[in-house]
Computed example of a mutant assay.
Amino acid sequence: MPSPFPRLLAVCILGLIGLAMPPLATPGHAQADRCPKLVATSPFLSPPRLTALPAAMPQPREVSLTFVGHATFLIETAGGVTLATDYNDYVRPAIVPRVATMNRAHSTHYSLNPDPGIEHVLKGWREDREPARHDLEVDDLWIGNLPTNIRDWEGGTIQNGNSIFIFRAADLCIAHLGHLHHILTPEDLGALGRIDIVLAPVDGSYTLDVDGMIEVLKALESPVVIPMHYFNPSTLERFLARLADSRYAVQRQPSATMMFSRATLPTTPTVMVLPGR
C-alpha cells in the first residue's frame, strides 16, 4: 500500500501557497472578507476615528456620500461619524468632520491649519518618505490606507508621497484614489481587496492619464465609480466617453449627496456623476 505521506505533503504545500497569496478582487462576491480591514496585517494598510451628527442620518446599513468638490467628499455613517477626504483650505464641507484625510500633491489636497475641532487628521504621507500607516476604527467607521508614489515638479518620483484611503462602513468599502500617478500592482490590488465604490481622479494629466485610470478601474472591478478632480466639464466628458466605450453605464445624479447600501449597488459597473463645486 503506497504511503500517504507524499500526498499529505503536497496538500500542505498548496495550503501554504494559498495563505501566502494576496486576496484578489472577485466580481460579484459579497463576502465580508474581501474588504481590506480583514487583511489589515498587510504592511500597506492602516485606520482612523469619528464625530458629529450628519444633517440627514443614513439608515443602519447605509452610508451617505456627498461630493463637496475637487477631491473632497463628506462621508457620513449611520452611527454619526463624519469624514472629509483630501481636507484643504479651499474646498471644505459645511460641517467640521470628526476625521479628515489629506494628501500632499498640492495645496488643494491638504491643510496646514485644519480646524481644531477635527478629532483625527490623517496624512497620507510622512516627511521621511517612509510609508504612512493608518489602521483606525471610530465607532462604525474603519479607515486604512495604501501608500502610493507621486511625481514631483521636476518629473522625479516621491516614494510613498500619497495614499489611497479606504473606508469601511455598513459592509461597504470605499476607496479614495487620491492623487494617483501610477498603475496599481497585483500586490496593491490584493491589499485593497473588494472595493465597492471608487472615488477616482479623472483629469488625465495632473494625475494618471485617462488610459491608465481606466486600466486601474477595470482591475478594481468596482460596481460604482464616482469621478472627481476634473477641473472643467470638457475633461469630465472626455473621460465619460472613454469609459462608456469600456461598457460602463453612466448615470448623472441630480444631487451631490447619495445614500449607498450593499443591497442597492448596481449589478453592472456604473459611473455616477455627482454635481459638485
Rank of each mutant, 00 (worst) to 15 (best):
M1F: 05
M1S: 10
P2K: 02
P4C: 01
R7Y: 07
C12F: 15
I13Y: 09
L14D: 05
L16R: 03
M21E: 10
P23C: 08
P23S: 11
Q31T: 15
C35H: 06
P36V: 09
P36Y: 04
P36T: 05
V39S: 15
T41P: 04
F44C: 12
A52G: 06
P54H: 01
M57A: 12
P60Q: 00
V63P: 07
S64H: 05
T66S: 04
F67K: 04
H70A: 03
H70V: 08
A71K: 00
T72R: 00
L74W: 02
G80A: 09
G80S: 06
T82M: 11
T85C: 07
Y87T: 09
N88M: 01
R92N: 08
R92C: 04
A94W: 01
R98A: 10
V99L: 07
N103I: 00
R104Y: 13
A105P: 03
S107P: 13
T108E: 11
T108K: 10
N113K: 12
P114I: 14
D115Q: 09
G117A: 02
G117S: 13
E119K: 10
L122S: 03
L122W: 01
K123G: 08
R126E: 08
R129P: 12
A132G: 06
D139H: 14
T148L: 05
I150K: 03
E154G: 15
G155M: 04
I158Q: 10
I158F: 04
G161R: 02
G161M: 07
F167R: 02
R168E: 13
A169Y: 08
L172Y: 14
A175Q: 02
H176K: 06
H176N: 12
H179M: 11
L184E: 08
T185I: 06
E187W: 12
G190A: 08
V202H: 09
D203V: 02
G204E: 06
G204D: 13
S205A: 05
Y206M: 10
L208W: 01
V210K: 04
M213V: 14
I214C: 04
E215A: 10
V216G: 08
L217S: 04
K218F: 03
A219G: 01
S222G: 14
P223K: 07
V224H: 00
V225W: 00
N232L: 07
N232R: 11
N232S: 09
N232P: 11
T235S: 02
L243T: 02
L243W: 01
D245Y: 03
S255T: 04
A256V: 08
L265Y: 03
V271G: 03
M272W: 00
L274D: 07
R277N: 15
R277P: 14
R277W: 11
